[in-house]
Design a protein around this nucleic acid. Structure first.
Lengths: 336, 336
DNA sequence: CTGAAAGCGCTTACAG
DNA sequence: CTGAAAGCGCTTACAG
């Protein structure tokens, strides 16, 4: 490893070392191969740049090009576990395509969202925004949807924006219902998430479509406590279900606790199916049957769509082709 | 809400609207109160800037000031659950102090780390780096430790760097041992994490110091499977422990599964104490007694230390004062 | 009290 | 084939 100089090399350093003008260096460094420079000059410049470890300064370049090489990632709340596979997919793809990811949090209140907008978009820190937030009805989102800045709504649709990247959540709901029906269950229940979440409501719609409207529904926050309380209500009801579809893994852990407390056995007394597969599912009691969604792929697709917009392609909705899949473990069984 | 113009206002826009020179605008906008301008001019400028929703362009400002207003956050791997309270603390504090957080992943191999260095530091995208990564022995880290760029090692010490911000992990180990000892346990075990992690090894040292060297030790990755396998080894050993201190919540879930499979009851047959409290602990079977660490505070302190360096203060180690605390639930009990 | 100039590091027409 | 200039948006001595 060469010793690193105190100050990173500038274009001017490369130019003087190579005995040419900065503009020439700039041209060979990021011009296409067809820029006319004498081959030996080109070689000399390339070699010098490499030797000095030259990298263009992002500020200088950005100022000139009105481009940052950064993408903003607006997540709902760092308080809730960020859906890490999505972030990972997005991060990896962005990095691979030469972009860096800037974190922002949508803290709920409009004032703060306004602030995030200002800091990122308005100060010119990013080229585009990945919005995983999107409480429906936030006026700020309408601005984004209108296309002020390249943006995509990730895992949430903003109706009419034409910038939505999402999964087949409706199909996940159908799949869950079909799984239960195939096992002979007749009293199904849905332990759903907050209905204002787009994914949650599409999943619900899919589930109800297949399962019919006799399904018992309880909705709660996507937390252990939410799952615990909703499940307690569900089994305390008049028509106790024999199979329940739970909105996420946190809820499922809480739901399992509620069932334990109610003295109900899984899957003997009640089958539990969890949305989103996770390593933890395998180690719960009993190991949870789950629906696996293409989360990493979603992050990747979101970034690709965003960069597409940045490069001038027209915005469009994209729904991932990869279908939801059941990962069978031991928490669901034949009705008896 | 005012209609947002297509192009954000520039300094020049404010200047011409207010009928003054850009330099004057700049001076009143970020000069201290004592810059000499006629009060009415100042008011007019302030008013115009507000009306146009002016925010300084980060590139222009950054280029001039050699400052970005961004902090890099180098996390071990997005594959493992990022320690979200730490990130949250860091994010909130950075945001509050006017900095934005840029995500980077230390993907393990040196080549890629070099790449992260180049993209963030070398291209001048950040003012400083929060390193939560730090596989000991990565040569890149020595560069950082040498102070090429402001940086702090967060929740990991880089020996001799004088830039470490960390918690009282040794005390957490002691506390765990004391908890078990106070309950009358004599056959203690440690289900530890990878020993190359600084936190893990300090915790281990603290635990062994109090518990004596008869402690059974198994080390494993910080995953459910790691916990499962290590716990299986532990209870299969010659001298079965009656109390075990587990390195993190993922391991604990796996460990509980292993105990179930071995037919051991918690806490009747064996007490389990989990490092790092988490909402999930309350809903496991049995609810897990845990050690709560000041994770959010750690993120906050890391950012404060980093900004301190950026502002020219000498770097120094800081260890959080907040002590580890036991959150008692039902997985630990009197020895019998 | 305010303006004009220089310059941060780059890229891109435009000359030559 | 290569150089010189202008300009992206800002800030900061320096004049006046």
């Amino acid at each position: 490893m060469t010793t690193r100089p105190a100050r990173p090399a500038r274009l001017g350093d490369v130019a003087s070392e190579a005995g040419v003008h900065v503009s020439t260096v700039s041209r060979v460094l990021n011009g296409s191969d067809d820029v006319s420079v004498r081959p030996e000059t080109r070689t000399r410049i390339l070699e010098t740049a490499r030797r000095l470890g030259y990298r263009p300064n992002a500020m200088g370049r950005g100022l000139k090009l009105a481009t940052t090489g950064s993408l903003g990632l607006l997540v709902p709340s760092l308080r809730n576990p960020v859906n890490s596979p999505i972030v990972r997919g997005a991060f990896d793809r962005a990095w691979a395509r030469g972009f860096v990811l800037v974190l922002a949090e949508d803290p709920g209140d409009d004032h703060a969202a306004e602030d995030a907008y200002g800091r990122l978009v308005h100060e010119g820190r990013i080229d585009g925004l990945l919005i995983q937030s999107a409480r429906l009805g936030n006026p700020l989102l309408d601005d984004f949807a209108a296309g002020i800045v390249p943006c995509v709504f990730l895992d949430r649709r903003h109706p009419g924006s034409g910038r939505n990247v999402f999964m087949r959540d409706g199909d996940a709901g159908c799949l869950a219902a079909e799984h239960f029906l195939a096992l002979g269950h007749e009293r199904l229940a849905l332990l759903g998430g907050p209905p204002e979440l787009d994914t949650v409501s599409r999943r619900k719609a899919g589930f109800l479509e297949r399962a019919g409207d006799t399904v018992a529904v309880e909705e709660a926050g996507l937390t252990e406590r939410g799952g615990f309380e909703a499940m307690t209500r569900l089994v305390g009801g008049p028509k106790q279900p024999t199979a329940v579809f739970v909105a996420n893994i946190s809820q499922a852990v809480g739901a399992l606790a509620a069932l334990r407390e109610a003295g109900l056995r899984v899957p003997e007394d009640i089958s539990v199916l969890c949305h989103d597969d996770d390593p933890i599912c395998e180690f719960l009691d009993p190991p949870l049957t789950a629906i696996e969604m293409p989360l990493v792929e979603l992050g990747v697709a979101g970034v690709d769509a965003l960069i597409g917009q940045i490069e001038g392609e027209p915005a469009r909705d994209v729904v991932l082709e990869t279908p939801p899949a059941i990962v069978e473990r031991r928490s669901t069984a034949q009705a008896r």
